[in-house]
Every structure is written in structure tokens, then in C-alpha cells.
């Protein structure tokens, strides 16, 4: 079966004062029905731009410069505004990081959920309202028939994100993009939201692109992972393998940054110290052909300095890495 979403060689640039600055370079990945692809990386590495490029909602000054995005066989990049409108909210939908600002403060949540159904399903106002209650129940909002008439400011952060999820899934999309859906929420609520997403995915068979820097969530929810660094994909593999078999020094660094609770260990034990990756992601416009991770890499050798960043190299089934020394690092 063809994948629901197929991104090939996608590049995005920003039209800056000094010409086109690459933001995302040659990204490729597929997501199959019912599967979850996680895009992982630090802030500023191009995760959100990927999401917005798929939705064709890139901010002004940002443009797709090459590549192809196939959604259920339809080329999104060449779709007319009208075709895009019929895709958005219908075949693909998105939930955003900040559920307070992503919902319009002046309309009830019922109205905002119903709006999607009125637009894409042609439901009447009354039917859309009834359906909205059903969707609020589906995302486990208590007293849904009352909350449907609540305004966003009357709900908690977690509830608002549930409303966003209800809104995104109202038309049973083929693809759901979740852009850091839990970053703005309490830790306990984060787990609930991930559980909810996972349950809903089981019911609807929606393909999910999950953008996150929560590696715990990746392990729990994702089938595949693409690690992005400075606008380039540097490693891709199955999610359950990423912790044990990561090859790229950056991925390994990210793994080491995750705190682990282990019973019976003393605080003076080496593993009690949390690792960090020194330095920062190079800013836009300061990225040359060299490996972007080079200045921060503990494993950098002569070959890394002499050669440009290698392309993603397929290493085993479903896994690829972009590093000159990956075999030495993790044989």
C-alpha cells in the first residue's frame, strides 16, 4: 500500500536580506497509514518548517525550493489554493504547540470544532454542534454537552489541547501533524495527551507526523524517527531501535540528555549526572556544506573537516545515517 504521506527531497529557504537562506535541506520520509513518524531535534532545526511546508502554511518569506510532498497520491506543492483548502482540515490537519493562542478566544469551542464540519462536510449549524459534542466526548472531555459552549479561556491547557485534537480529527483526516502538542502542558497532562493520540490513532488509522523533542514520547508513540539537525536529516530509523542503536553522535548525544530514574543508584554514581551537548545549533545563514554538527561533535576527525557533510547513507533496513565515522562510533 502506498504511504499516506511521502516527502521527497524537500528543501525550504527563507528570503532574507542577504538572499535565500536554506532552512531545510533535502528531507525525505514516508508515513504509512496508522503509523507515526517522529521528527526530533533541537529548536531551530527545521521541524516546524517541515510541518508548515506540508500544510502549505509557511510564513511569508519562506518558500519550498525543491522536492515533492505527496498526500494520498496528491502533490501538495502544486495544488491550487482551492484544492489546498479542501485538503486542509479534511485530509490533513494539524495541532499546534500552544493551545491557548491556537484557538480563537472569541468563539466557543463548539463553534470552532463545528466550523470544520460545516466547511468540509456541509453540515448545518445544529448538526455540527451535535457532532462537536460527540468529538469532545471522544477526546474525553467531561461534561462535553456543557463544555461545547465554553470559550477557550474557560478551559485548562490540557482541555484546550484536547479541543484542538477533536478539531483536527473531526473530518477523519488521513494525516495528522502534531507540532510539539504537549510542550505547553504539565507533565501529567502530557502523558494523557499522548495516550489519547495513541488511542485515537488505533481507532482511526490516521498517519501521524509527531514533532517533538520529548524522546520519551517518541519511544512510546512513534514507529519511525527522523532526527533533524540544522535543517538536515542526520539519522532515520525505527523508533524502538533508536535508543539502543543510534549511530550519529548527535542522536547519541540527545539520548544521553534524557534523564533516567534508576532505583538503588547513588547520586555520586557517574550515570546520575545528566549529559549535555556543548554549543548551539548554528544559526540560519551560517550553515556551510560541512557537517553542521562538526563544531559540537566529540567524535569529529580529519575526514569530517576535509569533506562536506555526507548524504544519508542507508545502513540497514529502514535505517540511514549521515556521518563519516558512524561505523567507528557504533560498529
Amino acid at each position: 500500500m502506498p504511504p499516506v504521506l511521502s516527502v521527497k527531497d524537500l528543501s525550504v529557504s527563507m528570503n532574507g536580506t542577504r538572499g535565500m537562506v536554506p532552512v531545510l535541506e533535502h528531507l525525505s520520509f514516508d508515513v504509512a497509514q496508522g503509523k507515526t513518524m517522529a521528527l526530533v531535534g533541537e529548536s531551530g532545526c527545521g521541524k516546524s518548517m517541515t510541518a508548515l511546508a506540508i500544510m502549505q502554511l509557511l510564513p511569508e518569506d519562506f518558500h519550498v525550493t525543491s522536492g515533492s510532498i505527496l498526500l494520498d497520491g496528491v502533490e501538495v506543492l502544486s495544488a491550487s489554493p482551492k484544492e489546498l483548502r479542501s485538503l486542509r482540515g479534511n485530509k490533513m490537519s494539524m495541532i499546534f504547540q500552544e493551545p491557548m493562542t491556537a484557538l480563537n478566544p472569541l468563539y466557543t469551542v463548539g463553534d470552532q470544532i463545528g466550523e470544520v464540519l460545516r466547511q468540509h462536510r456541509g453540515l448545518s449549524r445544529r448538526d455540527a454542534h451535535t457532532q462537536a459534542i460527540q468529538f469532545l466526548k471522544a477526546v474525553q472531555i467531561p461534561a462535553a454537552d456543557k463544555r461545547v459552549d465554553a470559550y477557550p479561556h474557560q478551559l485548562s491547557g490540557g482541555m484546550r489541547q484536547r479541543v484542538m485534537i477533536a478539531m483536527a480529527l473531526a473530518c477523519k483526516p488521513k494525516l495528522l501533524i502534531a507540532d510539539e502538542p504537549t510542550t505547553a502542558l504539565d507533565v501529567t497532562v502530557q502523558a494523557q495527551i499522548f495516550d489519547l493520540l495513541s488511542e485515537l490513532q488505533d481507532d482511526t488509522d490516521t498517519a501521524i507526523v509527531l514533532i517533538t523533542h520529548d524522546l520519551g514520547a517518541v519511544a512510546e508513540l512513534a514507529d519511525d524517527v527522523a532526527v533533524l539537525y540544522a535543517g538536515r536529516c542526520i539519522e532515520q530509523r525505527a523508533a524502538h531501535e533508536i535508543i539502543a542503536r543510534a549511530r550519529h553522535p548527535y542522536t547519541r548525544g540527545l539520548m544521553a540528555c534524557v534523564p533516567h530514574l534508576q532505583l538503588g543508584r547513588m547520586s555520586n554514581h557517574a550515570s546520575a549526572e545528566l549529559d549535555e551537548i556543548p554549543g548551539m545549533v548554528p544559526p540560519l545563514g551560517a550553515r556551510g556544506p560541512d557537517c553542521a554538527f562538526l563544531p559540537r561533535c566529540a567524535f569529529a576527525g580529519d575526514i569530517c573537516r576535509a569533506q562536506p557533510q555526507p548524504p544519508l547513507e542507508r545502513i540497514d533496513a529502514g535505517a540511514a545515517v549521515s556521518c563519516w565515522r558512524h561505523q567507528e562510533i557504533a560498529p
Binding site: 500544510m55 502554511l57 486542509r88 482540515g89 494539524m94 493562542t101 478566544p105 466550523e115 470544520v116 466547511q119
Partner: peptide, 22 residues
């Protein structure tokens, strides 16, 4: 440039609803 306008566009609403309503 507000997030809720982006949400409205992400829902596939026509531009006159995005602007005239949201």
C-alpha cells in the same frame, strides 16, 4: 499573524471566513 488565524487556515476555511470571522 496570530496563531488562531493559522489554525483557521489549517482547517481549510476560505479566506473570507479566516479574515471576516476570525
Amino acid at each position: 499573524t496570530a496563531d488562531y488565524v493559522r489554525t483557521a487556515r489549517a482547517k481549510g476555511l476560505p479566506e473570507f471566513v479566516v479574515i471576516g470571522k476570525h
